[in-house]
């Protein structure tokens, strides 16, 4: 491994791109009690992206929302694999069809090498569902931090 070469993860998560993603997350989380996070890493270790996303979800303690309405968007950049995982509260509302439709929509952008655009789309789509099913009126305590988590 060449330590001098920036990893695909740090190449993606530039300051400007991070700002775009965080803005998308904040916008998506406005007026809903649901929470969205992004986890980016370079490679899977043999598991499927969905299994990995679920594992990361619990490692990041994202099940800590009161209504179990957190969702994690997961990317393994060098493997070019990704997953969306939603907790049981949101999953009970949207079902498999929603995840698959948004997976496909994100994939279209990923195919065009618009990784950030695909992520933004996923965040916005999940946010729309969260606002529909878990609306809040005014003061919305951010139950989880908005940070992008990554491992290189």
């Amino acid at each position: 491994m060449n330590l001098l070469k920036p990893s695909s993860v740090s190449a993606l998560l530039t300051r400007a791109n991070k700002a775009r993603i965080l803005a998308a997350i904040r916008k998506a989380e406005a007026r809903t009690s649901g929470e969205i996070r992004l986890h980016v890493e370079s490679r899977l270790k043999g598991e499927s992206p969905l299994v990995r996303a679920e594992q990361r979800f619990f490692e990041l303690n994202m099940q800590a929302t009161q209504l179990r309405n957190g969702a994690l968007i997961y990317l393994a950049l060098d493997d070019r694999r990704f997953a969306i995982f939603g907790d049981k509260g949101i999953h009970a509302k949207v079902g498999d069809d929603f995840w698959q439709a948004e997976r496909d929509a994100m994939q279209v952008r990923f195919h065009q090498d618009d990784i950030i655009g695909g992520i933004e789309h996923g965040i916005a789509a999940v946010g729309a569902k969260l606002r529909a099913y878990f609306p809040v009126d005014d003061d919305n305590p951010n139950q989880l931090s908005d940070e992008i988590s990554h491992a290189e």
Binding site: E54, D87, W99, Q100
Partner: peptide, 30 residues
């Protein structure tokens, strides 16, 4: 036993859901 996920070509995805934790999702590749 949770879910199932994609192969390497863009047509072989499958969604997951209803697994051990009760959450759900979908995965794919690009």
């Amino acid at each position: 036993s949770f879910g199932s996920s994609s192969g390497f070509s863009s047509s072989s995805f499958s969604g997951g859901g209803g697994g051990s934790s009760g959450g759900g999702g979908a995965s794919g590749s690009w």
